[in-house]
């Protein structure tokens, strides 16, 4: 004698991946756009404010001088000022262009004498173009 067959609900066999793909694509696009911005050292610093917006380049090599005197060329921390020229020179060689913009990001409270020594090292590292980073102020 056969048991009566019980009707079963159809099994869910497909996973909805639409939302996963949405998020993944947005992440890829945003990471592509913000990747150049993330190539700077995360040191504690307060940039000096300025109204003018002079140099507009997405890609540059950054030299960061933190509030406590910490230094970094892009993401790599530097022990002394004298090391900056060597590290910068090798970085510019990797890029393959001495014409790349080098941006000096220095804390507003640092003495100019310290910043000037770093600028001299940047020049010694072979940088042809240089800019000083500022925090954009509103209005005139």
């Amino acid at each position: 004698m056969r048991a009566p067959s019980v009707p079963q609900a159809p099994m869910l066999t497909r996973i909805n991946v639409t939302s996963v793909i949405d998020v993944a694509l947005v992440l890829v696009i945003i990471l592509l756009v913000t990747a150049p911005m993330l190539d700077v050292a995360d040191l504690d610093l307060d940039l000096p404010g300025a109204h003018t917006r002079d140099v507009e380049e997405q890609s540059y090599v950054s030299v960061t001088l933190g509030r406590n005197g910490d230094m970094a060329v892009e993401n790599q921390e530097v022990g002394s000022v004298e090391e900056i020229s060597g590290m910068l020179s090798s970085r510019l060689s990797e890029i393959g262009s001495q014409e790349s913009l080098v941006v000096v990001r220095a804390d507003a409270d640092l003495p100019h004498e310290f910043v000037r020594r770093v600028i001299e090292q940047v020049r010694a590292g072979g940088a042809q173009r240089m800019a000083i980073a500022t925090r954009q102020l509103e209005g005139e």
Partner: peptide, 21 residues
Amino acid sequence: ILLLATPLAFESSIGVKSAQK
């Protein structure tokens, strides 16, 4: 992501010539 990237977006720079040049 915008919260994280906003401080960097408000950075700008002023071009200068090197001291020796």
